[in-house]
């Protein structure tokens, strides 16, 4: 048996695919729906931060999509220059540039996983499962980087010590209270992870007996 055949595993016998249709459709459907959710998530916010201060009764808002940052960036950058924080646009430039292609790649892997009937399917779907976590860890890293790499010559550098904004939840910096929450896009990605994990269960149920038989 070639490596490729050992990787993709046995094909579904003719008879079974009609008599036991549900058994094979469920994992496929779950992977495909998860892929769809990931595609949709590209167009939705992954992360939102609101900055509250007395001078801004409506708050200042920052919205992170997979590939871009929107909101009151000009104003937030203007405030950040007092403490010597770098312009937000400089953050995660590599991640923003590859994120869409990356998500599309995850989706391709998910769709490819439909044709893999062995335990190796985990390798194809694991990146998609981990994606929300990777997003948050990466974001926290950038928050750490921006909060600690302050220009010492900035006007308020002596008043504001380096700080690490929290990736989710509340924080306080000077007169600002920050509230960071996951966006709908991130929720969709998380839902996709859950569907994939559930899909793996049905995948095992569908194909384990075939693999056992082949062995």
């Amino acid at each position: 048996m070639s490596v490729f055949k050992r990787f993709v595993g046995p094909r579904i016998p003719e008879g079974l695919s009609t008599t036991d249709r549900r058994r094979f459709v469920i994992p496929i459907a779950l992977f495909v729906v998860a892929a769809g959710l990931l595609i949709v998530s590209i167009f939705l916010p992954y992360w939102e931060m609101t900055l509250l201060a007395p001078q801004y009764p409506k708050g200042l808002h920052l919205t992170a999509y997979a590939n871009r940052l929107t909101g009151d960036i000009f104003e937030i950058d203007g405030l950040n220059h007092y403490i010597g924080m770098r312009p937000l646009d400089e953050a995660a430039q590599f991640e923003k540039s590859v994120s869409v292609i990356g998500i599309v790649a995850l989706v391709m892997l998910l769709l490819a996983a439909v044709y893999v009937h062995t335990k190796w399917v985990v390798l194809l779907v694991l990146p998609a499962i981990l994606m929300p976590l990777v997003f948050l860890v990466d974001l926290q890293w950038w928050l750490w980087k921006f909060g600690t790499d302050l220009d010492p010559a900035a006007p308020l550098s002596s008043a504001i010590k380096p700080f690490v904004p929290s990736v989710l939840g509340r924080g306080v910096i000077a007169q600002f209270e920050t509230v960071a929450t996951p966006g709908i896009g991130l929720w969709l990605a998380i839902l996709a992870s859950i569907l994939i994990i559930v899909g793996l269960y049905y995948h095992r149920k569908a194909y384990k007996p075939l693999a056992d038989m082949a062995a």
Binding site: W187, I190, V198, Y201, H203, R204
Partner: peptide
């Protein structure tokens, strides 16, 4: 693969993820 596809694990994972977020 085995671990992830065990029903009890799946349930635990789903509940944990939902709870955390």
């Amino acid at each position: 693969y085995k671990f992830l596809s065990r029903p009890s694990t799946i349930l635990l994972l789903v509940v944990t993820v939902i709870a955390v977020f």
